[in-house]
């Protein structure tokens, strides 16, 4: 009878595939979000061609509207507007990248703000170029400042990936749903899915802690 099939070895395969999709969506949207968010933050900082404000308004919108709404907007809106096909995974990555970028931009700006600006004048007075100042002084100091925020954002965005299941991405959550509907064993299925997310999050946290330590060596010792 339907819903009474018990677990099979294929469920394990399904689980692994879901895990792969979740991790893939998470990783690609994190990397893209980091790149675009940093660019937006820098455009804002250097106030390039006055578009910084517009971009920040955009990222305010992304930060303060539900990811689910953004997901629907991208998944149903973009194909309608540009008459192109968008797979659920593509829509998921676009949405989460944009959402992550919005948060990253804010972190980048506040991290640059946290730097004492007088040392930048000193660097300028020694004929360092603006690019050298960005690379040698602003970047390392703001990265040390931003790292803990990046890590907690990453852990949060990992949980947010579970929303992509509603547009048909077969991620970990969707896999849980599929297996649960077949087996009717919610108290086995969902704890396993939950623990999988938990382990993933812990993994991200661990890697994050490593990176934090690595990039904050100077900062830490300069606070003695």
């Amino acid at each position: 009878m339907y819903g009474d099939q018990g677990f099979t070895i294929f469920d394990l395969q399904l689980w692994a595939e879901g895990l792969g999709i979740t991790f893939g969506v998470f990783l690609s949207s994190s990397i893209l979000g980091l790149i675009f968010g940093s660019i937006i933050g820098l455009i804002r900082y250097y106030n390039i061609i006055g578009i910084g404000r517009v971009l920040m308004l955009g990222s305010e919108f992304l930060k303060n509207s539900p990811v689910l709404v953004q997901l629907f907007l991208v998944y149903f809106g973009i194909p309608a507007l540009f008459t192109i096909d968008l797979s659920p995974v593509e829509a998921a990555i676009i949405t989460l990248s944009g959402n992550t970028a919005a948060f990253i931009a804010v972190i980048v700006i506040s991290s640059i703000d946290a730097i004492d600006k007088k040392q930048l004048e000193a660097a300028r007075s020694f004929a360092l170029s603006e690019w050298q100042i960005l690379r040698l002084i602003i970047y390392p100091q703001s990265l040390a400042f931003a790292m803990p925020m990046f890590v907690s954002l990453a852990i949060n965005q990992l949980q947010v990936t579970s929303l992509v299941s509603v547009i048909g991405v077969v991620d970990l959550t969707r896999v849980g749903d599929i297996i649960n509907q077949r087996t009717f064993e919610p108290f086995i299925v969902w704890p396993i899915i939950g623990v999988t997310y938990f382990v993933l999050a812990k993994l991200v946290e661990r890697i994050g802690a490593r990176l934090e330590q690595r990039f904050s060596v100077h900062q830490a010792s300069s606070e003695i």
Binding site: K118, A122, Q132, L136, I137, Q141, H218
Partner: peptide, 24 residues
Amino acid sequence: VFQQFDLYPHLSVLDNIALAPINV
């Protein structure tokens, strides 16, 4: 030379001194 020193806090003393000679 600045009143408030304005050294680069993320660099060691040696690197503070050598930064501009190396890069400029």
